[in-house]
Nucleic acid binder design. Sequence first.
DNA 1: CGCTTATTTGAGTGAACACACAAGTAAGTG
DNA 2: CACTTACTTGTGTGTTCACTCAAATAAGCG
Lengths: 129, 129
Amino acid sequence: MSESVDRLRRYLEDELGECRNDDLQNRLQELEDLEALLSEETVSEDVGTLAALGNDTRYRLVRLLVESGEELCVCEITPLVDVSDSAVSHAFARLAEAGLVTKRKEGRWRKYRATRRANALLTVLDGSR
Amino acid sequence: MSESVDRLRRYLEDELGECRNDDLQNRLQELEDLEALLSEETVSEDVGTLAALGNDTRYRLVRLLVESGEELCVCEITPLVDVSDSAVSHAFARLAEAGLVTKRKEGRWRKYRATRRANALLTVLDGSR
DNA sequence: CGCTTATTTGAGTGAACACACAAGTAAGTG
DNA sequence: CACTTACTTGTGTGTTCACTCAAATAAGCG
């Protein structure tokens, strides 16, 4: 730790031409404030969401739901991705857990729909490419 | 494959009360069109981006850069995450590869900055929580 | 009820990951 | 030009994944 503070001091000396102890303390405080913005809960929720979408199969499922703009039956989606029924089911379970899709039972059929969050994410991916 | 078409036919019979062959062909075409929107390249680029951000360490690095709004030196960021220098370096390499950060050398220091895409993604995560 | 079908759940397994440690590179310094 | 410093790169390794197959659940039907 104090080793990394040494490195930071040398960096500030480079940047400022000199480096009083005040400068170092200031920068340390600024960086600490920055870190404080990262709440443990936010991080794990966001990372969970991103990791859920960051897989070929799951991304495709969500993309299909978003493009269709409606609820789709598992039986309609499965033929569009190249994995087993079981894999599709596992994938949807994880997506639901991450809040990217919602599930509804209708008789013997199960239907999934993309959430607002899923729509927002794909939209921003499209828009920043 | 024809097995899943059978399932789809039964589904449509449920939905429509009946199901002529035309209905089935129509729906099959609609679903095929939906699938066609998924270009192989788009999928792998987006999935790469999402998977890169979907890791605790890498997410934190990007979040710090985005919050700071400026270029930061590796030496400033490393003390804020709880892994080795080496891990930070590996993480930045992957983020750069995914187009989420850019790198600049300045003498013996290396500085990273979040890209527009990184900013957009974190913004939408914040806004859809 | 017993049978079929739609989907889920529970292993098991090969592959991909994330990180630490050690060695390498490149810039700056005396 | 040796020496330090600021990273980066290569490699080994325990861990997490993603998927498949098999078994379980659950709804609809005769």
